[in-house]
Amino acid sequence: MRGNLLIGAMLALTFVAGCTSPVNRVGGDPGPAGSPSTSASPPSPSVSSAAATGSAGPGAPATRTSRPATPVSEIRRTDWPNAVIRDLKFCGESDDSVKFRNGSNGLDVPCRILPDGARPVYADFVTEEPANAPSTEDALVLVELGNPDAARRQALVPVQLSYNGRERYARPIILGDDSSPSGDRVMTFISYRVVGQNVQATVRKLDGGTETRRWRTVNLAGNWERY
């Protein structure tokens, strides 16, 4: 009888020890901030192997696992440092096209496109010509005329695709202020953006101060006025 009691007590102790033993956890390096958390737990038995691998069973409709990439507009494909832009009279060339190479047209008084790391702004903000032309994105780019050690002047240039979508045309520009007579002080566009059909920019004036300026078109030709 005593032997049976001892055996029962030992079995009870074994059961309690098994219930209170610590749970083994699988460790791992934390992922970068914002990444989905990972789990070391095995998949639930209720999840079928077909669902886990992403395959569809017989008769199940095919599902798309990723969305197609958004197509890039033609104007965004422009290689701006080597672009050819027509009607850009700001650069002072006699030809109807300005051909940039490595960001400059290479003349004695050079015209530089997107100087000092400036970037283009894309938006559909230029009136389409002709009126039945397909609506496409346009670009606003910064161009600077003059040598770095002499009088310089900057301008914001709206660029529009031609009707056939292959050529790039400059529309009426937004001209910056004249530099100082000695050329040691230059008005520069610090930043610029398109707001609806209008243009807004932060500029650094000749006296070193900054201000926000806004322009809107005043006629169908696309000329700008400050307001």
Rank of each mutant, 00 (worst) to 15 (best):
P71H: 02
P134H: 01
P134Y: 07
P81K: 09
V121A: 14
A155V: 10
F100P: 07
V72E: 02
P134L: 05
S94K: 15
T63N: 04
A51K: 15
A118T: 14
S46F: 06
G103S: 10
P68W: 02
S48T: 15
E144G: 07
A60L: 02
W80T: 04
C111L: 06
D87T: 05
N147C: 03
A83E: 03
P81L: 05
D95L: 13
S73W: 02
T63C: 02
V72Y: 00
L145M: 09
P134S: 12
A56Q: 11
D96S: 13
N82Y: 08
V47L: 14
P45I: 08
A155D: 03
A83P: 08
R86C: 03
T65G: 09
G117A: 10
D116W: 07
D96F: 04
A60F: 05
D138C: 07
D116F: 14
V98Q: 12
W80L: 10
P148Y: 10
Q154T: 06
A133D: 07
R112L: 10
V47E: 13
E137S: 12
A150R: 11
G146T: 03
P45K: 04
E129K: 15
E137Q: 15
R101A: 13
P58N: 02
A155M: 01
P45S: 08
L145W: 12
S48C: 08
L107R: 14
R67A: 15
C91M: 10
V84K: 12
A51I: 15
L114N: 11
R101L: 12
D95F: 05
V126S: 04
S97K: 13
S97W: 03
K99P: 01
S49Q: 15
S55E: 13
D96Q: 09
A56L: 08
R86E: 14
R64D: 03
S46I: 12
G146H: 09
L145Q: 11
V121G: 03
P130M: 06
N102D: 15
Y122E: 09
T78W: 01
G59Q: 06
V98K: 10
R86V: 01
P148A: 11
P81V: 07
N105C: 12
R112G: 00
G106A: 14
K99Q: 11
E129S: 15
P110F: 12
P81F: 05
D96P: 00
Y122I: 05
N105F: 07
T127Q: 14
R152V: 05
V84Y: 00
A83D: 11
F100V: 10
D79P: 13
I85N: 08
A51W: 12
S49D: 13
D108H: 05
R153G: 13
P71V: 08
K89I: 03
E93Y: 02
I113A: 04
S44C: 11
P68Q: 05
G103D: 09
K89M: 02
A118S: 15
N132E: 13
A56G: 08
S44Q: 04
G103I: 10
W80I: 08
I75L: 03
P115M: 06
P45H: 05
A62I: 07
V72W: 00
A51G: 10
K99W: 03
